[in-house]
């Protein structure tokens, strides 16, 4: 196996173009496990840890531009206010050692339906910035990034440069079910965001469909009900049963399987509970923020 170790972003893109089968690696928390278990034998590893610009985040034209190699630990420590949903998700990932190595870019690259970054990125309408030596930069809305089980929208010569997320205009929540209280892969997960500036609701479902996905109809339903009752302005209490109905509609958006981590029925049930609770917490935060 070849080991490519570019030190600049341009070199990294050139290497990827020259060897499209090269598997990018930063923290190695996923890639090295796959290799150790002999599940993947890529012709080359493309080590991106020497590319300094991938490790930075900064405000960028009204959005946070999060370099692909920023670790979960830094998201937790530095971005809890700017990217609250993502920071909440980062807190649930692995152990401190894993969070010190693992990156949001890596989570997107793996595109596992169980990846913890995905629900908050979906809920926050994040955009994935990808690049290639031949065609330069393009932006892919995160909802279009996941194309199948562990596949994504990257072309063979493309790399993930960054994730672009608008700062929150309202409260965000992230909930994740695991069968122990730490260091666990999600049985099911849910990301939620209120976007009062555009009277919208953001959602993201994890581990309950072939890809991470939104609960679009549920989000539109909730946003519409809030609008109809004038609640975005009044910040009044949630009407009886509204969060519960939202939970049911989130559940309807999922398509989980039975596996060794949990049953499909439990995944559906837990999603409906998480969605109800997350919406309630976020709404209460919104009311308190008035």
């Amino acid at each position: 196996m070849e080991f490519l170790a570019p030190t600049t972003w341009a070199d990294a893109l050139a290497a990827k173009a020259a060897c499209p089968g090269a598997l990018p690696v930063t923290g190695g928390t996923d890639v090295l496990v796959e290799i150790n278990f002999d599940r993947r034998r890529p012709p080359a590893l493309l080590d991106l840890t020497r590319v300094a610009e991938l490790r930075d985040w900064a405000p960028d034209r009204g959005r946070i531009r999060l370099g692909a190699a920023v670790t979960y630990s830094r998201v937790i420590d530095e971005l809890a206010t700017a990217l609250p949903g993502l920071a909440m998700a980062a807190r649930t990932i692995g152990s401190p050692q894993i969070r010190n190595r693992g990156t949001v870019g890596g989570n997107l690259g793996a595109a596992s339906p169980a990846g913890d970054s995905h629900p908050p990125l979906l809920a926050a309408d994040a955009v994935v910035e990808v690049a290639s030596a031949a065609r330069g930069v393009r932006e892919v809305p995160v909802a279009q990034f996941y194309t199948g089980v562990k596949t994504n929208a990257l072309a063979p010569d493309e790399l993930i440069a960054a994730v672009l997320v608008a700062p929150p205009r309202g409260p965000q929540q992230f909930c994740k079910i695991g069968t122990r209280n730490a260091m666990v892969i999600a049985v099911s997960a849910f990301g939620f965001a209120l976007h009062p500036d555009r009277r919208a609701v953001g959602t993201g479902i994890g581990s309950a469909a072939p890809t991470p996905r939104r609960a679009e109809a549920a989000a539109e339903f909730l946003a519409g009900e809030l609008d109809a009752a004038g609640l975005w302005e009044s910040r009044g209490e949630l009407p009886d049963g509204l969060a519960r109905e939202f939970g049911h509609r989130v559940r309807a958006a999922a398509a989980p399987i039975d596996d060794v981590r949990g049953s499909a029925a439990y995944r559906l049930h837990s999603l409906s509970v998480m969605a109800r609770r997350a919406a309630t917490w976020a709404w209460n935060d919104y009311r308190r923020a008035a």
Partner: peptide, 12 residues
């Protein structure tokens, strides 16, 4: 961390 679900944030 003191609640069922831990930092999974499934209940307050």
């Amino acid at each position: 961390r003191e609640l069922p679900g831990g930092v999974g944030n499934t209940t307050h």
